[in-house]
Design a protein around this nucleic acid. Structure first.
Length: 620
RNA sequence: GGUCCCAUAGCUCAAUGGAUAGAGCAACUGCCUUCUAAGCAGUAGGUUGCAGGUUCGAGCCCUGCUGGGAUCACCA
C-alpha cells in the first residue's frame, strides 16, 4: 500500500478530532516536500486556521505531535517551517512499498465499463502526411493508450477525406500528364505519387491563369475594376486583384477548373471510369499512408471515409426541425440559432437542399454512436477548428444526443517552423516520411560516431537506430502541452541528448545492462532494515507518483504530463546510477534494494514510454 | 469589430492556488582504469508582457491594457 494513502488515513480523523474540520481524500493539502527541506510530504496548514483558531505553526505542531503519537508506524517525525508541516515517513514503510512494487506489474486502474471513441488523423487523399499530421497522430495515439490505461474501453478511428475537388485535381493531372505511371512502375510511394500530381495540377493551372491574365478579356476586366473603384478606398494593384480573383477564375473561366469540376460531377454521378480511377488512386494513397502509420507504430480500429459519410446528417436535420431546435428560412435553407449560448447562427442545409460540413459531422457523430455506443467521443483536431467544435457540440446538446455530455475536442496548436507557418506553395512543408527517415539516420550517425554498438549484429543495430530515432522525434513533439502552438525546429527534433526520448531510453538501457551482469532482483527479498539514502528515497518517491500522472494526463487530455514525468524519472535514475553503485554495492542488502529500485524504474519507464508510443531498446 | 487561445532565462519548454519559479539547448568548468559519458557534477542566465484586484499566500484566479495566433462562409 502506498504510504501516502496511509498518511491520509491517519490525517483525516486527527484533523477532525483536533479541529473539527473534515478533509476528504482528495482535498487534503498534501504535497511532496521540496528538496531543500527534510521530509517526504508536506501538509499546508493555512486552510485550517479558521477551523482551528490557531496560527499555522501551532496547527502544524499539534498535528505533527498527534501523528507521531497515534500513527507512529507510518510517521517517523516532522518539522515545521513557516506553517508548513513536513512529515517524514517511516523508512520501513518505503521499503515494504518497494518490495510490493517490484512484485506487482504495473499500476492497476479499475475497468470503468465505459467506451470512449478517439478520432485522430484526418488525412486528405491528395497529399502525403506532414508534420502537422504527425502531431495529431502522436497525440491521438498516446491519448488512446492513456485512456485505455485508466480504465476506458477505447476505440480508435480515423476519418479519411477521400472525395472532393482536391482528389479530382490529382486524378485529372494524372490523366493528362501521368502516362500511366503507377507507384510500382515509378518506384514512388503511392501517397507521394498522388500528391505530386496534385502539385502538377496546381502548376498547370497557374500557367493557364498567367497566360489568361495577358488576354484582352482579363485586360478589360482589370480596366472596368479600376473605373468602378471607390476613390475613397485604397487602390488595388493589378497583381493583388488577380490574386484575389484566382478562385473565381477557377470556378468560372478556367478550362482546367471546368474539367476538374466536371470530374467531380461525374464522380457524384457514379461515372464508372472516374470511379475506377478514383478507387485506384486512393488505394495507392492508402498503401502509402499505411507505411507511414507503420513507421509511427499506430493503428486504427476503424476508418471512416468521407465518400460514405458526406451525405449523412439529413435525418438529423429533420429531427432538429421536428424538435424546433432548427428553423427554415424563406429560401428553404435550414439554420440553428445558438446566440443563447454565446455562439452565432449556423446554416445546416443550403437553400438548394445540399448539406454543409457541419451537417456531415452531425451525421457522422450519430453514425459512430450507433456503431460503438461510446459515451464519450474525443476529437483530436487542430485548434483552427475550435469554433466548429463548439458549435457542433452545442447543436448535439440541443438535440439532446445521448453522448452530448461526453464530447471532447482535444485541440492542439498548429505546428510551425522557425521560419513561420508551413506553406505548401513555398515548399516549406515538412514531409512525414522524410522526417522519419532523417531522425533514424541521425540516430545511426550519432551511434556510429560513438562507435559503441559495433559488436551488436547489424540487424539488431538497425532496430535500435529505428527505436532511438523515432523516440527522439516523438518525444520532441509529445512533451509539449497540446494546446500550445508549437515551433518545430528540425534540428532539435533529432537531438539525442538532454530532455529527449533517447535520454529516457538510455536510463532504461543502463538498467538492462545491470541486469545482464547482476541478474534480476530476488522476487521475495526482504529489504527491511536498510537505511535508505537521500538519492535512493528521492527516486522511490518519484516512482510512487506514477499513477497520479497517468490519471492527470487522462483527466486533462494531455499526454505531455506522462512525457515530462518519464523524463523526471530518467533524470532521477541517472543521478542515482552515478551516486550509488549497484554491482559493487557496499552490502548485499544495499545491492538488493538498488536492484529493486532499478527494476521498478525500468518497468515504469518502459510503460510510460509505451503509453506515448515509444519503444525501449535493451541496448543502445 | 465579436469570440477563443497564447505570452515564463538568449532559444525550446516545465511548474494540483503553497515555501527561494525549474529543465533542456546554446556558453563556460570539471568527471570515463570503476554497472553504457546518448551520462553526472558545477558556473552563468528571471521585475513570469504591462497595470490593478481577490487571497494568509498568485506564473496560475478576476478586470483592464499591450503584443502574437486562430476563428467568425449557403468552404472543407
Amino acid at each position: 500500500m502506498h504510504p501516502i494513502y496511509q498518511l491520509r488515513q491517519a490525517i483525516i480523523p486527527l484533523v477532525q478530532d483536533q479541529f473539527g474540520h473534515v478533509f476528504t481524500e482528495e482535498d487534503i493539502p498534501l504535497t511532496p516536500t521540496r528538496k531543500e527541506f527534510t521530509g517526504d510530504y508536506t501538509l499546508v496548514t493555512f486552510p485550517l486556521t479558521r477551523a482551528a483558531k490557531m496560527s499555522p505553526d501551532q496547527i502544524a505542531v499539534v498535528l505533527g505531535d498527534a501523528l507521531v503519537a497515534e500513527a507512529g508506524n507510518v510517521v517517523a517525525g516532522y518539522n515545521v517551517i513557516k506553517g508548513f508541516l513536513n512529515i517524514e515517513i517511516q523508512t520501513a514503510m518505503w521499503l515494504s512499498y518497494l518490495e510490493a512494487q517490484s512484485r506487482e506489474t504495473l499500476p492497476a486502474f479499475p475497468r470503468l465499463d465505459e467506451r470512449v471513441l478517439v478520432e485522430y488523423a484526418s488525412p486528405n487523399t491528395n497529399k502525403p502526411l506532414h508534420l502537422g499530421h504527425i502531431r495529431n497522430i502522436l497525440l491521438g495515439w498516446s491519448m488512446s493508450q492513456i485512456l485505455d490505461r485508466v480504465g476506458y474501453d477505447v476505440t480508435k478511428v480515423q476519418v479519411v477525406n477521400d472525395r472532393g475537388i482536391a482528389i479530382c485535381k490529382s486524378m485529372l493531372a494524372w490523366q493528362k500528364f501521368g502516362k500511366g505511371i503507377t507507384p510500382a512502375s515509378g518506384g514512388i510511394k503511392g501517397d507521394h505519387l498522388v500528391g505530386d500530381f496534385y502539385v502538377r495540377f496546381e502548376e498547370a493551372f497557374k500557367e493557364e491563369y498567367a497566360a489568361w491574365q495577358t488576354t484582352k478579356t482579363a485586360e478589360n476586366m482589370w480596366r472596368s475594376v479600376q473605373e468602378s473603384a471607390d476613390p475613397e478606398k485604397k487602390p488595388v494593384s493589378r497583381d493583388g486583384f488577380f490574386k484575389n480573383y484566382k478562385n473565381t477564375y477557377f470556378n468560372e473561366a478556367s478550362e482546367l477548373g471546368a474539367e476538374a469540376r466536371e470530374m467531380l460531377l461525374k464522380w457524384e454521378g457514379n461515372d464508372p471510369e472516374v470511379r475506377t480511377l478514383w478507387t485506384t488512386m486512393n488505394e495507392w494513397v492508402y498503401a502509402g499512408f499505411q507505411e507511414t502509420y507503420d513507421a509511427l507504430g499506430v493503428t486504427f480500429d476503424k476508418s471512416y471515409y468521407e465518400s460514405q459519410t458526406y451525405l449523412l446528417g439529413r435525418a438529423i436535420v429533420d429531427k432538429g426541425l421536428a424538435m424546433k431546435a432548427f428553423y427554415r428560412e424563406d429560401d428553404g435553407s435550414v439554420w440553428i440559432d445558438l446566440t443563447d449560448v454565446g455562439l452565432d447562427k449556423k446554416i445546416l442545409l443550403r437553400s438548394d437542399g445540399t448539406s454543409v460540413y457541419m451537417t456531415q459531422d452531425l451525421g457522422t457523430a450519430q453514425d459512430r454512436y450507433s456503431d460503438f455506443k461510446a459515451s464519450r467521443m474525443v476529437y483530436v483536431v487542430a485548434d483552427e477548428q475550435n469554433y466548429h467544435f463548439q458549435v457542433l457540440f452545442a447543436i448535439l446538446k440541443k438535440l439532446k444526443a445521448a453522448y452530448a455530455d461526453g464530447l471532447v475536442h482535444l485541440s492542439y496548436g498548429m505546428v510551425e517552423l522557425p521560419t513561420g507557418r508551413m506553406k505548401s506553395r513555398e515548399g516549406t512543408v515538412v514531409d512525414a516520411d522524410d522526417l522519419i527517415a532523417e531522425v533514424i539516420r541521425e540516430a545511426r550517425e550519432g551511434a556510429e560516431e560513438r562507435g559503441e554498438s559495433e559488436e551488436i549484429p547489424a540487424e539488431e543495430r538497425n532496430e535500435i537506430y529505428r527505436k532511438v530515432g523515432i523516440a527522439a522525434l516523438k518525444y520532441h513533439m509529445i512533451k509539449v502541452n497540446p494546446k500550445r502552438r508549437m515551433i518545430f525546429d528540425p534540428k532539435e527534433s533529432v537531438d539525442l541528448q538532454g530532455h529527449t526520448g533517447p535520454y529516457i531510453q538510455n536510463a532504461y538501457v543502463r538498467i538492462q545492462s545491470i541486469f545482464r551482469k547482476a541478474g534480476h532482483p530476488q522476487p521475495n527479498a526482504t529489504l527491511s532494515g536498510y537505511p535508505l539514502q537521500a538519492g535512493e528515497k528521492e527516486l522511490l518517491l518519484l516512482l510512487s507518483e506514477y499513477p497520479v500522472h497517468i490519471q492527470s494526463a487522462a483527466d486533462q487530455y494531455d499526454p505531455s504530463h506522462v512525457a515530462n514525468y518519464a523524463y523526471a524519472v530518467a533524470k532521477a535514475y541517472h543521478k542515482f546510477y552515478h551516486e550509488y553503485p549497484v554491482l559493487r554495492a557496499e552490502s548485499d542488502l544495499a545491492k538488493e534494494v538498488r536492484l529493486h529500485l532499478s527494476l521498478v524504474t525500468g518497468r515504469i519507464l518502459k510503460d510510460a514510454m509505451e503509453l506515448l508510443g515509444m519503444e525501449m531498446p535493451d541496448r543502445m
